[in-house]
Design a protein around this nucleic acid. Sequence first.
RNA 1: GCUGGCGUAGCUCAAUGGUAGAGCAGCUGAUUUGUAAUCAGCCGGUUGCGGGUUCGAUUCCCUCCGCCAGCUCCA
Length: 636
Amino acid sequence: MPVTAQQRGPLPATGAAVKRGGTAATKAVPVRAAFYFIRHAKEGATVEESKGAMIDFSSPEGLHILRHSTAHLMAQAIKRLYPDAKLGIGPAIEDGFYYDIDLPTPLTPDDLERIEAEMRAIVKENLPIVRAELPREKAVELFTSRNEPYKVELIHDLPKDAVISTYQQGEFIDLCTGPHVPSTGVLHHFKLTSLAGAYWRGDEHNRMLQRIYGTAYPAQEELDAHMARLEEARRRDHRRLGKELDLFSIQEEAGAGLIFWHPKGALVREIIENFWRAEHRRRGYDIVYSPHIARAELWQRSGHLNWYRENMYTGLDIDGVEYLIKPMNCPFHILMYRSKVRSYRDLPIRWGELGTVYRYERSGALHGLMRVRGFTQDDAHIFCRRDQLHDEIGGVLDLADYMLRSFGFDRYELYLSLRDPANPQKYAGSAEDWEWAQSTLAGVLEDKQLPYKAEEGEAAFYGPKIDIKLIDALGRGWQGPTIQLDFNLPERFDLTYAGQDGQLHRPYMIHRTVLGSMERFFGTLLEHHAGAFPVWLSPVQVMVLPITGRTVPYAREVQAYLRGKDIRAEVDDRDDKIGLKIREAQLQKIPYMLVVGDREVENRTVSVRHREHGDLGATALDTFADGVLAEIAAKR
RNA sequence: GCUGGCGUAGCUCAAUGGUAGAGCAGCUGAUUUGUAAUCAGCCGGUUGCGGGUUCGAUUCCCUCCGCCAGCUCCA
């Protein structure tokens, strides 16, 4: 196990996690909360100091150790089965671990079972795991003699003063800071999950190693729950749901990464867009439209041809002039801004556009609706004075929060993307501008007391940004809203406004989306709700199900009544049994089914069935409609 | 783009060096049904595109296109 930046830091010192004490603790404790001894609970601790340190596998850091040790166990098994294997790195990750290994032949899923079997054999051997510290030369010698060139490379790159340590279990030795469990015998509940390629040190110019992913938990039921979550994620995959619910498709004949919105998907999108427009107008935005292509000259001036060319579609020749397809809307909004003289009284100007852009994405990056080559951003650009910037950014954060909550996302994470100070040539603008812009964004987040994570090197070429990652029902994160500060384009296009002092001033510019793109947001929404959209978004809100042909006319009356109240209602008038109609409406995840037979006709009622709560019994039609309308209004 | 895997009917999948089969869907007919699948019949594929090997390819090989898992990159 190599040393990575992440692992080099000390373990979080939560009081409960690391305890000192006697050996009795393992007894009479349920497996879930089992305490095990580990060696070297803290970096730099002597063997004596850390003897007796204990870790709770159900704590985050304990789980990390468990998985890290399981990664070693896997590496040992692989070395036994494939003596030629050369070890890369093998860290614990968010829900498991992986190990990158250089093997002469590709592994297949069947090999995973063999490796797992060997892992279990090593567990049975209950090999003690022993730490050793050694001088750099000795470490190089050791791993050279063991034919581990990647480990040797890692040792060379360790800082001068680093303590170099190894962990040994039986014949297996790995470079690693630890800590680890005391022996292989305590590892039980693990599973190897998948195979993939991964570049050595994440650099595509390096050799590609084979990455084996696995996971481990303190208890079998937790491992089972993890596997069930993976299954659930497959079940609600937006690509599968998109097909099953007939929402969208991607047509090979048209090209990869291009989305076809089928009527039901288009309807949901329209609802989202209408809501979006109304909410923006309410908050002082104006809605605009702009073209899809523009002359190369414009993209030259905007800087896109310098900084973004590899993502742009080129080659349009119109009357001998080169045009490019827009990858962003900003230069167009800028041109509109410049179409007349602006006064300080006009600012802030907030222009929103559901603007469709095209960006080249490498084929391997494409993924359903989440990563496409043509998409519609819910874009807007705010032009404002310096004294308005803080409030404008705050206003966008409020709007993003409101929008996300309206769609059922009540958890999200904020990231502040900063430039990479080591690569200033990657960015437009001066160092001072960047410093100022970065601290402005951070200042707004801090004033709003929003917790965020700063990430260096993640900024756009024209300015720093705040990214919002949505957390869905399965706890997965998805990139959504983004707020980017731009001090580059106003400069390049010489944007001005006349100030109170009669002088010309430079406005500031904010690029922002609050959903991200219609495609990605829709995909995220689909997965979040597992296809069962809230009623206000459901393409079909009510399906009326006549039991026999006799009751079809009444069903049509019910439908007409509901449609009169703007409720999206359909009638399943097929000559089929009620069980089938219900089954299909359920599978289409339609929120309400209204069963109408002779009894309902006679009493002028409907029998309500809810997709989740089942049969709710008969009720008067207007009572039902009022309930649905209330639900729609509340966006539940 | 890279590594590995994959591409057979609208969908989910089976089979084979001797030109393919099931279920669902669709169509037709019968059935008039009370809360997750009524029955029967019929239709449906130059096995992703192109090339090669072979007496013969859907099966073996190569190119390309696309998909999947990652890596890299991003709304």
